[in-house]
Design a protein around this nucleic acid. Structure first.
Lengths: 131, 131
DNA sequence: CTGCATCCCAGCTGATACTG
DNA sequence: CAGTATCAGCTGGGATGCAG
């Protein structure tokens, strides 16, 4: 049907774009953090994503808002209060993410074992990248 | 169950590691290419992943082999013939990947629309005075 | 409180050339 | 054919400082 083989290298390939998003460092964690409640404020998100800088958090949220995954509501108080939440589209991504998490928690131990075995067989020469 | 919130920033978090893998540029395409048959040779993989360099292909395959996703079988002929295939573990990842692909093909059009709408609302370079 | 402007750096990715 | 060696570039992510 759709998906010819070469699709995934087209930058416009839907799957490619989705993988780029959810593979981004903080995105999956923000989905978790936002999924817990209806709305979460900026500072609270920072707390739930320990280590993120405000720049990266703002950047990531803007990208997700642009994608339609995240809603942004500003209360025009002083100082301002900004509330973020998942849109229906964003919530619809929860299922695929849960499938990934389940697979990971079920099988990544096998991956660890495979790595140990591989490293025992080939102690030197493993590329440092992609580890 | 497990998954405390902070898990996803731990480099050892299973989900984090899985996302890093499948988000890598050529991995999902190689899974597609390898899933079609039992075994595929190096040069054939290059053909099925147009644009990949032999270095990147070799690196990626080695990482996937180390993870236990991919098997590697060398025929000691001259010149050598190397056959790659998916292990059972690698094949078990097909389902999660299919879920992602399905979601992407169903919903990424909505994301495109959201982006267009966002870009219309916030064109580049709009003076703040006009907001 | 929120988040933009800058500057900066690591490492993923790629181009090219070479070898058993 | 199936890689390895080397070098270069870009982009994502981060530190810091400032502003509305």
């Amino acid at each position: 049907m759709t998906a010819r083989r070469g699709d995934l290298l087209d930058p416009s390939c839907p799957t490619r774009q989705l993988l780029d998003r959810i593979g981004s460092k903080w995105v999956s964690m923000l989905f978790l953090a936002l999924g817990a409640e209806d709305e979460v404020r900026f500072a609270e998100l920072r707390r739930r994503a320990p280590g993120i800088s405000s720049k990266v958090l703002a950047d990531t949220l803007r990208v997700l808002e642009r994608d339609g995954f995240v809603s942004r509501r500003v209360e025009p108080t002083v100082p301002p209060a900004v509330h973020y939440g998942l849109t229906p589209l964003g919530r619809s991504l929860a299922a695929p993410l849960a499938v990934l998490r389940d697979w990971a928690e079920t099988h990544m131990a096998d991956v660890d074992d495979a790595r140990s075995a591989y490293d025992t067989r080939a102690p030197v020469g493993t590329p440092k990248s992609m580890l």
